[in-house]
Design a protein around this nucleic acid. Structure first.
Lengths: 223, 223
DNA sequence: GCGCCGCTGACAGGGCGCTGACAGGCTGGG
DNA sequence: CCCAGCCTGTCAGCGCCCTGTCAGCGGCGC
């Protein structure tokens, strides 16, 4: 899960980053409205935490521009004063949830998790593609009903492939979502990861489209 | 076990908190309908005690909104008047149990415990998983019928693992449910707790999935 | 047939989780 | 009021699993 934290106060930003990372997010931060707008418009996040008081471009405007551009990622809005008017404005602008400062980090994390759950709310917890099935609640993987022990990183890879099972996912995209932007430069890490997974799962699960990326073989037929 | 007590009468709220805490819950309270709605929607509780007469937003509406949003935690409804019509409304809105005021705290606690057990889909007060058995009424633990002396905190850990015995529970989730929101930030406290429990219970009870969390080994096979 | 992308096995570093020891706080008894 | 005992959080150290890196090779595409 990738998250963007938009916050100009460096100390709060650091706390935010730490808390979200502890919750399993890969976190990126930015400190002003313009770069926030650019990042949210061009990058692909599973969650954005947005402070309203920002230099250069106001948080509410950023949010409105995103929504106007059709970007629909869940956005959690932070505001300095917990006034009702600001809250209503935030909701109107397209915020999915709202948190007044000061807040406890635990509460933010809880709401962030709830948001991601809600936005992901497609279908049941168990997803299947061919022989492979993932249980999002138990975080387990099975092939033909036989449980396969996978590590946390391997699970995340499979979950992402499952989410985009209708296409081949480029290595750069996978690296981004698994490690964040500061990902290790060696793309070979991903190849090693895939190799280990293939050994565990057996053949016919993870396919390669040379020059394009990886995909779940049960996902699409042919080409 | 985390519980939310929604009650605007401060004296009753205090009694509720005390009684639930004595029963082993980590209790959070709130006094109006809107904050109740937010908390119940975003946080993760094992039980909610909900008074119907609330400022800002009526209890029944709160409950309906939760259910509409797909939140399925057990809710125990309190009402000032024990009228049948209100009871029917409550059940329709998705309440799991119903208690007319005035009530004895012992009865509330008993029903609360029953609700939590029922939501886990299991019958009696004694739950078992493999060699391990927990008695929810007496708050005692036994392995192969042999009683094992555990502290209150250790019991709560076991109870939570028992409730979610079908999966591995993340350390962050355990900290949240054992200590509430103001949990100590050192995750090592949990590791120490588990270590002490393992020494008391012996091997083959509490398992670890590296990168995921802890689980009861009798719960699931493999993976 | 050649080049290059991608695969694989081996290896080492790091981080997660385990353990034993210690200290502070709370409780109950004298 | 003091003391003793237990509970529990913190710390430091360590071991093991995960995972990134490297080198070499195989196979697909041109």
């Amino acid at each position: 899960m990738r998250a963007l934290a938009v916050e100009d106060d460096a100390r709060i930003a650091a706390d935010l980053t730490a808390a979200l990372q502890a919750a399993g997010f890969v976190v990126q931060t930015c400190a002003d409205g313009e770069s926030a707008w650019f990042l949210g418009d061009t990058e692909d996040y599973d969650l954005i935490v947005l402070d309203l008081g920002l230099p250069k471009l106001d948080g509410l405007s950023v949010l409105k521009r995103w929504r106007a551009a059709g970007r629909e990622m869940p956005v959690l809005v932070l505001t300095a004063r917990g006034t009702w008017s600001e809250r209503v404005e935030g909701i109107d602008a397209g915020a999915d949830d709202y948190l007044p400062k000061p807040f406890r980090m635990e509460e933010l994390v809880a709401r962030a998790r709830a948001l991601v759950r809600r936005s992901a709310g497609r279908g049941g917890a168990v997803q299947a593609a061919g022989d492979l099935s993932l249980d999002a609640n138990r975080m387990t993987v099975a092939r033909r009903g036989v449980p396969v022990a996978v590590t946390a990183l391997e699970y995340r890879l499979l979950a992402y492939l499952m989410l985009h099972r209708d296409r081949a996912v480029a290595p750069s995209e996978l690296l981004e979502h698994l490690y964040g932007d500061n990902f290790s430069r060696e793309a070979n890490a991903l190849e090693a990861l895939v190799a280990r997974l293939r050994r565990k799962l057996g053949p016919g699960i993870i396919g390669t489209r040379r020059g394009f990326g990886y995909f779940l073989e049960a996902g699409e037929v042919g080409a």
